[in-house]
């Protein structure tokens, strides 16, 4: 049986934990709003770019060089997987679900006899894969600071990816990230970055194109624009993923901290009940002792 003092100490420590988690929750909530705004601000750019790209891609060019970002290398042997996690923990299953999914994906690809490499984004995936499959990691990006990754980092990652691609180090690049669905739900999503998967953006722009079918004048010409557009699209896609992941992280942390705060509150209630009962029992015991002492006199 713990003494009164033990229980009191425990209540106090749970109380201070509760203070921390509720502060973290509020911080995450305000950061969530900011990263949502950021993600929103980036949307017009990426959606316009996708529309442009899909109207160009249907013209069906083929060839060497940059165009391979669209057409692929024609092989399906080597994969580069890009797991995107946060730098920091305490956000529920946010990081571990990405790591688990990536691990499963890598194993299944290897089961099919493909070779797999990893480019990790975020401290948590770097640390995780450094422990279990260090030899597969070709590059790691981490430490984005408290505001999350900016466009410059997306650009850096995309340049690195394209260097690897044109060096012939992989045929397909797939990014695994947490898609932001709502403040409390994130969805682990796999998206093929290289070669470009144009089936998605096409769907969005179709309705508009049908109404307005007149032809664009291309300056300088379609192929040159496409060659400019493709590398840019890779960095924009990465940027979008980083923003979504950042918003998701804040959302996940907010939910996790909300839970923790609630649990701490419950724990304090229970402990207070035990404390009061123990105290009451103690008083009753003393009273009985006094009364029985008085009776015996």
């Amino acid at each position: 049986m713990p003494s009164l003092k033990d229980i009191k100490n425990k209540i106090k420590s749970v109380g201070s934990t509760k203070k921390i988690t509720s502060a973290m929750k509020m911080v995450a909530a305000s950061k969530l709003r900011r990263s949502q705004e950021k993600a929103e601000a980036a949307r017009p750019y990426s959606s316009r770019l996708e529309e442009m790209l899909s109207s160009l891609a249907s013209s069906g060019t083929s060839g060497e060089g940059v165009i391979q970002l669209l057409t692929g290398t024609g092989k399906d042997e080597r994969y580069l997987i890009v797991p995107v996690t946060a730098d920091r923990g305490l956000c529920g299953g946010f990081n571990s679900s990405i790591n688990r999914e990536t691990f499963k994906f890598v194993k299944s690809l290897e089961g099919e006899g493909k070779s797999v490499q990893l480019l990790t984004v975020g401290k948590k995936s770097r640390d995780f894969f450094n422990r279990i499959m260090k030899d597969k990691i070709v590059e790691s990006f981490a430490d984005f600071g408290s505001t999350g990754a900016g466009y410059d980092i997306a650009l850096e990652i995309s340049n690195k990816l394209q260097n690897f691609y044109f060096d012939g180090q992989f045929d397909k690049c797939i990014i695994v990230y947490n898609k932001y669905v709502s403040a409390i739900t994130q969805e682990v999503t796999q998206q093929q970055l290289i070669p470009l998967d144009i089936s998605q953006p096409k769907k969005i722009s179709n309705e508009k194109d049908e109404k307005d079918n007149s032809i664009y004048i291309y300056e300088p010409d379609e192929e040159t624009i496409l060659k400019d557009l493709l590398p840019k699209n890779v960095s924009i896609q990465i940027f979008k993923v980083l923003l979504e992941s950042n918003a998701g992280e804040q959302g996940a942390r907010m939910a996790a901290m909300d839970n923790a705060t609630r649990n701490a509150g419950e724990m304090i209630d229970n402990l207070t009940l035990v404390y009061n009962r123990t105290r009451q029992a103690f008083i009753t015991k003393e009273l009985i002792e006094i009364i029985s002492g008085a009776e015996s006199v």
């Binding site: 160009l56 007149s214 032809i215 664009y216 004048i217 291309y218 300056e219 300088p220 040159t224 624009i225």
Partner: peptide, 19 residues
């Protein structure tokens, strides 16, 4: 500033896509 020279855009310009 279009790649092949500056483009002046007035209302009801024809459709152009340029870098």
């Amino acid at each position: 500033p279009g790649k092949d020279g500056d483009i002046g855009v007035l209302p009801r310009h024809s459709k152009v896509l340029s870098s």
